[in-house]
């Protein structure tokens, strides 16, 4: 983000107003779909521009991201044990349940 963008975020959006043609309430309502890459009715670039320029909405987006990073961090470390991997491989190679 450039210095100009930071300046716009600090002073650009009006209270209860909009930034980049999108009201703050609408941007926040779309925050999950935006992060999920699932926006259906509003262009991704428009929502992105709002969050980049709006000093009130951007912190909400940032916290949503921190939340997701935390739950991903907690979950992705878990992997199948070598024993389970061997059992599944054996089961597939034999085409029958191990017993």
């Amino acid at each position: 983000m450039t210095l100009f963008d930071s300046f716009k975020r600090l002073f650009g959006a009006k209270r209860n107003g909009d930034a980049e043609g999108l009201a703050c309430e609408d941007a926040l309502r779309l925050v999950h779909e935006f992060l999920d890459g699932e926006l259906a009715d509003v262009p991704h670039a428009q929502v992105e521009a709002h969050f980049e320029m709006c000093r009130r909405c951007y912190p909400h987006l940032h916290l949503e991201r921190r939340f997701r990073e935390a739950i991903q961090r907690a979950c992705v470390k878990e992997t199948a044990s070598p024993e389970l991997r061997s059992r599944v491989l054996q089961l597939v190679s034999e085409g029958r349940p191990d017993s």
């Binding site: 199948a80 044990s81 389970l84 059992r87 599944v88 089961l91 597939v92 085409g95 349940p97 191990d98």
Partner: peptide, 13 residues
């Protein structure tokens, strides 16, 4: 682990 084995068995079949 039991659920994973059952899942892969069914998927294989």
């Amino acid at each position: 682990e039991d659920l994973v084995q059952e899942t892969f068995l069914r998927a294989f079949k």
